Amino acid sequence: MTIQITFDCADPASLAAFWADALGYKVQDPPPGFDSWEQALTAMGIPPERHNAASAVVDPKGEGPRLFFQRVPEPKTVKNRVHVDVRAAPGLAGDERMAALEAECARLVARGAARLARHEPEPPLGGGHIVMADPEGNEFCLD
């Protein structure tokens, strides 16, 4: 069994590109026989104004879940009930962990994310994390 995580959004192509970069994923390849999604969608009879109705990114190693982005007409209005944790500092603790999280935070802010809050380590169970939002306001944590 595999899972897919779906994001409702306004601009699937842009949000897919952000998450591909954030996770080291890639935009899913078009179907066999096509050099691009534009070519495939045109051949399927999808009008150009609907070419950005959806996008997906996949783990190039085939290990992580597929992320699917679908255009919806309404904007995000409340806090996410489920969010993605980006494991940016596995195995690290204390100042070394927080420095790694800060470095990843700066990289993602430069790509359109927003920093929302930093939570300091609270041993023994709390390692510290940074709460962020992707370019469309979906919360995620650097953990």
Rank of each mutant, 00 (worst) to 15 (best):
M1C: 02
I3Y: 14
I5Y: 15
T6P: 00
A13Y: 06
S14C: 05
A16C: 06
A16G: 04
A17S: 12
L23W: 10
V27P: 00
Q28R: 13
D29V: 03
D29N: 06
P30H: 06
P31D: 08
D35N: 13
S36D: 05
S36H: 06
E38K: 10
Q39W: 06
A40P: 00
A43D: 11
A43H: 07
R50C: 02
N52L: 05
N52E: 11
S55W: 12
V57N: 01
V58N: 01
V58G: 00
G62P: 03
E63H: 09
E63N: 07
E63D: 07
R71V: 02
P73T: 13
P73D: 15
P73W: 14
K76W: 08
K79T: 09
K79N: 09
D85L: 05
P90E: 08
G91C: 10
L92N: 02
L92H: 06
L92S: 03
A93E: 14
M98Y: 12
A99H: 04
A103I: 04
E104Y: 09
A106W: 11
G112F: 14
P124I: 07
P124E: 06
G126P: 01
H129P: 00
H129V: 00
M132R: 03
P135T: 04
E136M: 08
G137Y: 07
